[in-house]
Design a protein around this nucleic acid. Sequence first.
DNA 1: TCTTGCACATA
DNA 2: CTATGTGCAAG
Length: 527
Amino acid sequence: MANGGEQFGLAEHPDPGCVDSPEEPKQENPSLTLSNSPQTASSQQGMGSIKVVLHDRELWTKFDEVGTEMIITKAGRRMFPSYKVKVIGLNPKTKYILLMDIVPGDDHRYKFADNKWSITGKAEPAMPGRLYVHPDSPATGAHWSRQLVSFQKLKLTNNHLDPFGHIILNSMHKYQPRLHIVKADENNGFGSKNTAFCTHVFPETAFIAVTSYQNHKITQLKIENNPFAKGFRGSDDNELHRMAKLQGKDYPVVPRSTVRQRSCSTGILSSGESQALRGSPETAGSPYSCENSLNSTSPQELLGAPPTHYTLPHPHLQPGQQPQAYNCSKRKAEENCSSRNLQHAYKKTFNSGSPSGNESYCHPSSYPPPPPPSGISSSPALCLTDSPYSSDMGQRQACMFASPQPRIDELNCASWSYSCPLTTAMTPMEPYPPYTPHPSYSSSPQGSRLSATTHQSSPPLGEHMGHDPYQSSGPSPQSSQNIYNRQLSSSLREYPRYTANLSPPLYHTLETHTHIRCGVPEWSAAS
DNA sequence: TCTTGCACATA
DNA sequence: CTATGTGCAAG
């Protein structure tokens, strides 16, 4: 993000067709899915035609230009702007699970000094990532398409022992939210082999987690745009009154009607000084997405799944990226991706290199991925299973898992994270210590919500990206980004023990190591 | 840096 | 009305 300016600077559209243009009137950025391999499984799966548009992209862009910060608290704090998307192209009758996770944007620790963000060291070991399953999941394509899909209730916490299923993050670290759409059709249940899913990343939603705001510009943007912070808005007069009140003086309050909010306007940022300048309209568009469908059934395979770690392209750095979606469908490892299979398919980013480049990645599903050289790859996998718990029998649980990294810390994390049942199964396969399953907490009555953990590891940034480049042929994405895929496990298993625990709200966490790299060296915020 | 209680806001 | 989400400032 922050760094922005770069990416946007020019908005070139690499693909005409694909993306949204910067100027689009609204914020819709269609993600494009383009499918690379339409005919492949993906198309069959129907995941290839899915487009995701980030709602209120302009607002996100305003924050991003300054260097978005999200407060994290022990109790859990919502994100603002809220992550809401419009999903297009789903099969109306097919059921899907929509979920989010938030992965490290890089492996740096940041500090805010001299009115700007800079790297101050290496990131802490990633916390176990958790998944936030949209409460409506699973639901039909018709349902999801009917209105905006809001992840507004998702909460962020800095409590590594959080019992509520909130997404755990480290303060002063950069993160990238991701949206995953998993096909949950009955005929294609999680357990089945062909579970397909696609991932969408909007680079403009990247942020640095903080316990208190660092950049005053961000504070102002939050106050101006978040209805719950309306109490802090006000005309100057109001400000004075408010201040006075705080000091114990009670003066009549002036109507603050005058708040100045800006609408989200134009893509250009208004904030006057936006610093960076990224004006990038482009981002809006679509994220890159990839689809996958897996066949692998065995846990092992799952585990073995390719590490998908992908790194994100630096969004920020690259100028004109256009959002595009990539689809990768992998049925079998052999198929599409097979060649690719590099074992790890991951996307690489080239940030520096090609401005417009984008890549998509496919992951081979079937091969166990050799760990990336750097060792850091992350390979999250998704697994879905039907859960008995869900209110609806049919509900499924979704979990992401990835092979853990060898790190101790992570291991530890794993221990406290809730693990998905599948995990267990998988564990054996994994190179690293297994996850221990943990009871899930349920917070919501409905069961629809699951949380999983993903472990993130931090890879060496630069390097591992490079390695295998597997690039996708696709068009280059612009703003949104990439996607990676992972496998889904087909097995449906039930784990009795979990059952009990899983109460209605199911939170499952699995660990996955994923690491996204956005490489931005610095976010400069600007200013 | 982070936590806590507060006033003020939404829903 | 209640419950909950905000940033602030004090600790």
